[in-house]
Design a protein around this nucleic acid. Structure first.
Lengths: 337, 337
DNA sequence: GCTTTTTACGTAAACGTTTACCTTAATTGT
DNA sequence: ACAATTAAGGTAAACGTTTACGTAAAAAGC
């Protein structure tokens, strides 16, 4: 068994209260006692037991992360951001997956409540009203990252998908594109799907271009979705876009992979724009132009917001973080111009 | 404040012991008491406090993950594997970064010991002898994942880098390649660097090909390392390999990106083989041939080994997991053949 | 030199559980 | 019908800390 504060006290010849005071530097002890206690603690390898501390202090200094079981590449960046901020503030982070399609979500949240996390950051989780009422019953602060609850019932940190899609589409138009496809989007997705469609269409309309539903290729943000979209584009020469705005970098790579197989040269024959700026974007050939989400910073911001809210006992406010258009090698002016 | 077992007991009109028995289904109570207690617990939103349980049971059912602050794309797969296994066994996982180049390593480990994790899985961390003695002093089980300690002083789960590099090189030779470069490797890295160099050279020697140190381009496994290696290859036409074995997928993409810029066609003019089979390998154009490490399974195996060792109180044994050569689109027979 | 303040500790309760041990009543066996 | 067993539930200690409160001695103030 591991040494306890009592062992340190006994060997040092003082009370546990004094040991605690020395260890936490609270004052109220003499210098020779302090050195003695410290020496003994080190000698017997004493480490304090956070379970006991949490119990008496009624605070665990732990925040939880809940994510769907995905392996998209920005996963790491988000977690890094959260963990770095948490660590700096002396908080631990405990991690749980919600399973694919949130199957394990409430179970996971329960788990965390029993661990007495002080707050939870839910990454990319879609909530319906039933979920929300159950979450409220849990009585634990929940902050959404890259997600949004119906009627904004929960605070969030995310980019403004409408604005980002608008800016991205506008950028393609300014390059001279008129027939711009939107690929891989899920129109039933209220948080990332519909706003991006709306932004895309608004930018077209603002430029006097008529949005064409035949240019929207639905999907689930994956590589495969991009492949399917591009195959559909090739199969229907009558639509013939000069640019495709993919709804994620992975989707963009999917369309690029089909283009490669079909001998369509990028960006000469077709421009492709991604979304996310995940690590793979810079490493693709040609390097992928994309709209960047600052994942690491989003993680940091989320953790900071959560922790300061915890410490100041104020409510967490939502925050829209800035996106950025990153021009690399997959967008050019269309050939016809 | 959250409801406690005492609240449940008081409202139900029984003792806390009985509540505990009901909640944990230990028997020794009547059916009507049970339903009453359960109803009360639910009504007041009682959740048990794991800090208290951990304290009295002297077990936290938590394992820790320590990783360097990297954003390589297999990060997610490893964590998913660990978390899934842990979750199934009723364990929580708490996550900490060791910082770049392990700057925060011992601090992180200490953190975890204070949290009383029952075991720690260290992912991709390189340990020197000083680290090791300090870790031993921590007296907590540590299992290495994709890493190895000097003199095998700690158990590990990893692929056999020597064999994998040997098989990969042999594969390239069988395709007809005779001048094969090795790119991005760190020769001072005892765990992933030297064994891969050795396997690479052994395969060459076994095929009566003389290893040539000029064909080894050192680096740090990154995308940039691959770019530098390929630039060096182009700058020195006298070495002119027909294939390059990159020491990671990212490095492979680095060499591919330079080839693209230089107009070198892959795989017609140059074959490229990666290492890892991270998500990006399948999404690259052309799709990257690579030696696959089963990251998700490695995570699972590590967690399972740790947990069964904890439960059976046996030592953790090391395990070499199988690699696999995945042939996609970046390796072909050399032109000269 | 006496009171007052400060310093340096010790005592013990509290945090929320689990569980060994005890007690009472009901059930069983004969 | 009575002893023996079992079932149902209570009591209280224990886990490892922190911290309010108490106390004795030393220091300071006059």
């Amino acid at each position: 068994m591991r040494a306890t504060i009592k062992d340190v006290a006994r060997i040092s010849g003082v009370s546990t209260a004094t040991v605690s005071r020395v260890l936490n530097q609270l004052g109220g002890y003499g210098p020779e006692v302090a050195t003695k206690v410290l020496a003994v603690a080190k000698a017997i390898g004493y480490r304090r037991n956070d379970s006991a501390v949490s119990l008496v202090k009624q605070a665990t200094r732990t925040i939880g992360i809940v994510m769907p079981t995905v392996t998209t590449s920005f996963y790491a960046q988000i977690i890094n951001g959260i963990e770095d901020s948490a660590y700096q503030a002396g908080y631990s982070v405990i991690l749980t997956h919600a399973g694919s399609s949130n199957i394990r979500l409430l179970e996971s949240l329960n788990f965390m409540v029993e661990r007495r996390v002080e707050g939870i950051i839910g990454v990319s989780i879609n909530l319906n009203q039933t979920d929300l009422t159950q979450i409220k019953a849990l009585a634990v602060p929940l902050l959404l990252l890259s997600a949004q609850a119906p009627d904004d019932q929960l605070p969030y940190v995310k980019v403004d998908d409408y604005q980002a899609a608008y800016a991205a589409t506008r950028f393609l138009i300014k390059q001279g594109h008129q027939r711009i496809a939107l690929a891989g989007v899920d129109p039933s997705d209220l948080v990332a799907g519909q706003p991006r469609i709306a932004g895309y269409e608004a930018a077209l309309t603002a430029a006097q271009l008529r949005p064409d539903r035949n240019l929207i290729f639905t999907g689930d943000y994956t590589f495969a979705a991009g492949q399917q979209a591009m195959q559909a584009i090739i199969a229907r020469p009558e639509v013939a876009p000069t640019a495709v705005f993919a709804v994620s970098d992975e989707t963009a790579l999917g369309v690029i992979s089909i283009c490669y197989q079909a001998g369509i040269e990028i960006p000469r024959e077709l421009s492709v724009l991604g979304y996310d700026n995940s690590a793979i974007a810079a490493m693709a050939t040609p390097a992928l132009s994309t709209v960047a989400q600052p994942f690491y910073q989003m993680g940091q911001i989320a953790a900071q917001k959560m922790i300061t809210s915890l410490q100041t006992k104020t409510v967490i406010t939502s925050e829209l973080v800035p996106f950025k258009l990153i021009q690399r090698g997959t967008v050019a002016v269309p050939r016809s111009n």
